[in-house]
Design a protein around this nucleic acid. Structure first.
Lengths: 324, 324
DNA sequence: TTGAAAGCGCTAACAC
DNA sequence: GTGTTAGCGCTTTCAA
């Protein structure tokens, strides 16, 4: 080790570099000086070989990146994560999880290449099948079978669905329908559950429900199906803004006015909410904060903190615009 | 090493694991079996300590992630990168570059934590100030002073600007203006240069130009300024679709019809191009391919290939819709 | 408080 | 072809 030019042993250099408290001030000074002068940078591999820590955490995202990276919600999560990491010594490893269980990702995670992992779970099946021995924090409520033991951060989809539906009810709407997400995505499930609770509480039937898939075209189809069954609909809760856009186009096509004939509430408060002709009333979710909180929880877990909450549900809020 | 349970030496295990050609088939079989049975996974840190390779590459993005992660263009690049990496043994490290030169990022890169880096350079100043000794491939043409020596992949902004302007000229427009990007972003500079060349070639003056900043509000302001100076405008090339949306709103506000009074061509072929009321004629850029190509170039560089082209300009194409 | 020495898990000469 | 032997650069007991 070159920095021994400071006239001390490698051990002392190591202590100084790692900020050990028991080093004489004058030594720490001369070592620092030598480090500076020689542009010494500790080798990460050697360090993690002995310390058994890598200083890296993985961000595991589902395979269809296309959807995820373009998705503003996901973008905000990543932003929140990087913001938290910025004031830490961890770096982020981006892993695109394949459905193939024997994929690189799994091997990588068990390779001890990262100290912990953040996994964005949207579909129920996404949750890391191979249980690794490193701490994992999920983004989004994972599958029910892991829900209790797992650490996760989620937005209050249930409360959001309830608030959205409540808005429709407060508006005096009585025949309220809903276009939901696919049945294997917990976010969609929870939003629907919120819808049901609000309807139940108001003594209204929660049966005008059709499943979408969080895309515009899926929503168009779902809306058409719904309209065939229920011509009297006067209120609609759609599980995402993008789907709301699709639903609204069908509604208008059928001659209905928004919000006069049918009041519509979306979910996400994405750019799509204000890009259409009629500004969407929707539910805002704290996405950046979600990413930040996920990273924070993982870092605390890695620091050995014992009282890290397993479940963290971030509040959502209703944003009233023109559609309802 | 536990896998010595296969009755061979660690060296042989290492050879088998790394696919060395000079190992007896029966040994490679029994070793593989033992590896499988014992769930042996080589330790990454130890391996890179001796091999001086990390199996990781960095993706360095400018600080304002907010813009970048939400940006479909960036999303597509990341997708292209991960797609290329998927069939390699490299993993991706995401680094958010701060403007602070003494930032984590710089230290990290010089720490030997990655074998190479991909850097998305949009602003001229973004280019890694600290010259690291690892191979770097830029996404987007970097600052002129590094343009020659650096490896980079870019889309043909110049050709795209030329084609867009050419479309306007072919349409018979004669008083054609342009809203450009900020003067420190090479993409915007090149698009403007394309505009100039097309105008020059047609013997038209290229002086109706105002600088935008790639945002809707910036474009609105730029359009207003342009309209004050040039009331006769009948054609407009806008350096991004998002800005085109802003420009069009101002144009309409002033009572002009698109494309009858003013034909408009954008750039990017982003979702914004088809989300507005009038589908935008625009220039499509191969963003996913750009990411793929960047990763591919870096991987080849890391493999020691000598004939990796330093500059790679990917073709753009005009997409004709309703606005021009 | 500091130094000496051991060793983290692996690969790469070098012999056999 | 395979085993033996050195380290890779660092942290960390253990003595001093």
């Amino acid at each position: 080790m070159v920095a021994r030019a400071a006239g001390v042993s490698r051990a002392t250099v190591s202590r100084v570099v790692n900020g050990s408290p028991k080093v004489r001030p004058d030594l720490i000074a001369s070592v620092s000086e030598a480090v500076e002068r020689l542009h010494y940078v500790p080798n990460r591999a050697a360090r993690s070989l002995v310390s058994r820590r890598t200083g890296a955490i993985a961000l595991v995202v589902p395979e269809d990146v296309s959807r995820f990276f373009g998705d503003p919600f996901f973008a905000a999560i990543v932003q929140g994560i990087t913001r938290r990491l910025d004031t830490s010594d961890y770096v982020l490893n981006l892993l695109v999880a394949s459905s193939d269980p024997e994929h690189k990702t799994v091997r990588y995670l068990s390779q001890g290449s990262v100290d912990g992992a953040l996994v964005i779970s949207h579909h129920t099946g996404d949750a890391l099948s191979t249980p690794s021995r490193i701490p994992v924090v999920y983004g989004g409520r994972p599958a029910p079978e892991m829900e209790d033991e797992a650490y996760f951060v989620d937005v209050d989809n249930l409360g959001g669905g309830e608030a959205a539906t409540g808005r429709l009810i407060d508006l005096g709407r009585r025949r309220i329908g809903s276009i939901t997400g696919p049945p294997d995505m917990t976010a969609g499930i929870d939003r629907l559950e919120g819808f049901r609770r609000a309807m139940d509480a108001a003594g209204l039937p929660a049966d005008a429900v059709e499943a979408g898939d969080f895309t515009v075209v899926g929503a168009v189809a779902a809306m058409r199906r719904l309209l065939e069954r229920e011509t009297e609909i006067d209120g609609l809760f759609v599980a995402s803004d993008l789907m709301a856009v699709g639903a609204i186009s069908v509604l208008r096509e059928s001659g209905r006015r928004i919000p006069e004939d049918v009041a519509v509430v979306g979910f996400d408060d994405s750019p799509a909410a204000i890009s259409g002709e009629i500004p969407l009333t929707t539910v805002r979710q704290p996405s950046t904060e979600m990413g930040f909180t996920m990273a924070d929880a993982l870092i605390r877990l890695l620091a050995g903190e014992a009282d890290v909450p397993r479940h963290n549900i971030l509040p959502t809020s209703l944003v009233v615009r023109a559609s309802a």
